[in-house]
Design a protein around this nucleic acid. Structure first.
Lengths: 162, 162
DNA sequence: CCACTAACCATGAAATCCCATTAATTCCCA
DNA sequence: TGGGAATTAATGGGATTTCATGGTTAGTGG
């Protein structure tokens, strides 16, 4: 799976009182070049206290991969259960949300809580997918490289001045 | 089989005194994009104590798949029997119910009992199909990943507050 | 007639759309 | 190349629509 268009860059956007956030235009561009959806899929990140996000085309791709895996391994009861579990996590534990003509999504309360997102959402491109962070949590996490934290700090300052 | 439109997300809806339930709008959207039916097919899930559900178009697809499998595996008596069994399960042991203009189905009593659905129905998208659970049974099942149980708990809380 | 169900209204909450504002970028042409 | 002029982005607020859900009524078939 070599994706043509990759997510990159960072942005810090506000979550308003209604729970709306603008998805940065440069990420929307990638989504719309990968497929023709105006939609993002949200999931809890497996390792970090943030959200993982991608476009529906990428979700389908991932699904097809799982299917092929099942057909190969086949018929062991263990494998069947594991397949069920993975499927549940990949689809039931995610939410698909469309963005409107101005590029905003309504942050689903469930995901907002899972990602501990407050009034600010930090978007980070990571190639195949992108992440959405509560910037304070990113700054606190010891696993995050200092250079990346610098970027987060810069985004925060930048916003503070206005 | 690479389906274009996949079921994903979760919702917890009430079953009223008459046995009516709203099928979540985001699942209905997938059904209507896959075909033009306003109908769902219900079956007992093979592994979990819940119901499996999908659209009529997917039922046809599954049938075609079984047919092809039979033709491939030759006419060994075992294979033929297994085909008969699967075919029975796929069609005789299912119920097809239409949803009305407001998106509600009347829950068939047989399926309601098979899935042990009470006053609350938890809908879980799983890609090609979706599941309908009694939320309490999901929370009890040791095979369900903890992260998914968290989601079920969130949905329950969310409803409790109102 | 009676149980049951399809077909309608009704409603409050929530989501979506639409218009307006501001800031930042890009364009363009003198 | 310097500055407007035009476009794109992000965001706010209000109006509109959708959604889930409850209730009522009218068929319909046993």
């Amino acid at each position: 799976m070599a994706l043509e268009h990759l997510f990159q860059g960072s942005a810090l956007n506000a979550v308003d009182a209604k729970g709306r956030v603008s998805v940065p235009a440069f990420l929307r561009g990638v989504i719309e070049r990968r497929g023709d959806a105006r939609t993002i899929v949200l999931a809890k990140h497996e390792a970090f206290p943030c959200l993982s996000a991608y476009d529906p085309a990428y979700a389908s791709l991932k699904h097809a991969k799982l299917e092929r895996l099942l057909e190969k391994e086949e018929t062991s009861p263990d494998a069947a259960l594991e397949y069920q579990q993975r499927n549940l996590m990949a689809f039931a534990a995610t939410e698909e949300v469309p963005y409107d003509s101005s590029g905003r999504i309504l942050f689903p309360p469930l995901m907002r809580r899972k990602g501990q997102i407050g009034e600010l959402a930090l978007f980070l491109g990571t190639g195949e997918t992108f992440q959405i962070w509560n910037p304070d949590l990113l700054l606190k996490d010891p696993r995050i490289p200092e250079d990346l934290k610098d970027i987060a700090r810069f985004r925060l300052e930048d916003r503070g001045q206005s």
